[in-house]
Amino acid sequence: MAGSGEQRAAAGPAGGPAVTPPTGARRPVTVVSVSPALRAQFFPDRVGDRLAAATDATLVDDHAALTGVDLASVLARAEVLVTSWGVPRLDAALLDRAPALRLVAHTGASVKPFVTAELFARGVAVTQAGQGMARSVAEVALTFTLALLHQTPRFDHALHAGAGWRRAEQAPPRHEILGCPVGVVGASRTGRAYLELVRALGAEVSVCDPTLTPADAARLDARLVGLDELLAGSRIVALHAPTLPETRHLLGARELALLPDGAGLVNTARSWLVDEAALVAELTRGRIDAALDVFDEEPLPTGHPLRGLPNVLLTPHQAAGTVQGRRRQGEIVVDEIVRYASGRPLAHAVTPELLARTG
């Protein structure tokens, strides 16, 4: 229907040819609430073909259509809902319109913004594709790490601002990653992927995570320490912790003051973890550097003080957006739907208990 952006997925979300589903496989009625631009990234070529083969899918361009009348007949039959960022909360009112729903498959990582207790109470399973994002975000965190060690943001800002050559050359001491003390806060999927990358380049890694034992850390080839010790002893601190009540402003003014002069803070995780006002104050003094992909207010206002600081590297919350990562996310979603349709356990299920302790 033209008003809802609804389309039948007769030939696959990417427009490729339809393919035959596996012998004996069931094709659950599925609503794919993902914008056309994101569908092209998550479900290109054969990934899209697999989705079309595995499901009887209706494509929805705009999440708003889920609460409208045009999709009523499709939602009433839908067993699977594929979601992306910005999907409305799946509350009782919306779920009443989808009585057959049995699986929500999220193309992103955190489902906290839209998953409700009502969903679990009705026996609906939830899965997500965060594992597909881990490598992409870890590589950006590594890029940030190297940029801060080599003072790239300061050089770049100086040259773009028209500073003279001698002035542009001036920067704090630069360091290699070989032998560098790197602290990782949170041994999440992305934290572990980042840890593997920096260890491969010779960094000396410490990790702070209350869910780890010293033996767990040893298997990661890292030293398990408390937060204060990690902050005081690291040249680079990379944040990969979840969004929990206890991690709100995990790094405030007191914690940021523990960082050594010339240290760098890398945050590709969540702005929730850092008191942004305290960070701006510390960065304004020029004592430390930072590389940030996440912010309290997004889009980041053009007049925000972070935009004018020469010792800060900024990206617009795009650390996960690689071609390969997006494709992996789509593949995970399709794999999970196939598992559901064949009666096998989900590989990336989100339970109420897991949701309570992760971001």
Score class of each variant (00 low, 15 high):
256 L>R: 02
256 L>W: 05
256 L>P: 01
257 A>Q: 12
258 L>M: 14
258 L>Q: 15
258 L>P: 06
259 L>T: 11
260 P>I: 02
263 A>R: 07
263 A>D: 11
263 A>K: 07
263 A>W: 08
264 G>H: 01
264 G>V: 03
264 G>S: 07
264 G>C: 04
264 G>F: 00
265 L>M: 03
266 V>S: 12
266 V>C: 12
267 N>T: 13
267 N>C: 14
267 N>D: 13
267 N>K: 11
268 T>E: 07
269 A>D: 08
269 A>N: 02
269 A>I: 00
270 R>M: 07
270 R>P: 04
271 S>H: 15
271 S>A: 15
271 S>Y: 10
272 W>M: 00
272 W>I: 01
272 W>H: 14
273 L>K: 02
273 L>G: 04
273 L>I: 10
274 V>Y: 03
274 V>S: 04
274 V>N: 09
274 V>L: 05
275 D>F: 08
275 D>W: 10
275 D>C: 10
275 D>I: 06
276 E>K: 01
276 E>I: 02
277 A>H: 07
277 A>W: 02
278 A>K: 03
278 A>R: 00
279 L>G: 10
279 L>E: 08
280 V>Y: 12
282 E>V: 01
282 E>L: 02
283 L>V: 03
283 L>D: 00
283 L>M: 01
283 L>W: 01
284 T>A: 15
284 T>W: 00
284 T>E: 14
285 R>K: 10
285 R>H: 13
286 G>W: 00
286 G>L: 07
287 R>W: 13
287 R>G: 07
288 I>S: 02
288 I>V: 15
289 D>R: 13
289 D>G: 15
290 A>R: 03
290 A>S: 05
290 A>W: 02
290 A>G: 01
291 A>Y: 02
292 L>C: 12
292 L>A: 12
293 D>E: 12
293 D>M: 12
294 V>L: 11
294 V>R: 05
295 F>W: 14
295 F>Q: 13
295 F>E: 11
295 F>M: 13
296 D>Y: 01
297 E>Y: 09
297 E>K: 10
297 E>G: 06
298 E>S: 11
298 E>G: 10
298 E>L: 12
298 E>T: 11
299 P>V: 14
299 P>K: 09
299 P>I: 13
301 P>L: 08
301 P>S: 04
301 P>Y: 09
302 T>R: 11
302 T>I: 06
302 T>D: 15
302 T>Y: 02
302 T>M: 03
304 H>D: 15
304 H>G: 05
305 P>T: 03
305 P>Q: 04
306 L>G: 06
306 L>W: 05
307 R>E: 07
307 R>N: 11
308 G>R: 12
308 G>A: 15
308 G>Q: 11
309 L>H: 04
309 L>D: 01
309 L>M: 10
311 N>G: 05
311 N>Y: 08
311 N>C: 06
311 N>I: 00
311 N>T: 05
311 N>P: 07
312 V>Q: 01
312 V>K: 00
313 L>F: 14
313 L>E: 06
314 L>R: 03
314 L>T: 07
315 T>D: 05
315 T>W: 01
316 P>H: 06
316 P>G: 06
317 H>Y: 04
318 Q>M: 14
318 Q>G: 14
318 Q>Y: 03
319 A>G: 12
319 A>N: 10
319 A>Y: 04
320 A>L: 14
320 A>Q: 10
320 A>I: 12
321 G>S: 14
321 G>R: 11
322 T>I: 12
322 T>D: 06
322 T>K: 05
322 T>M: 12
322 T>F: 13
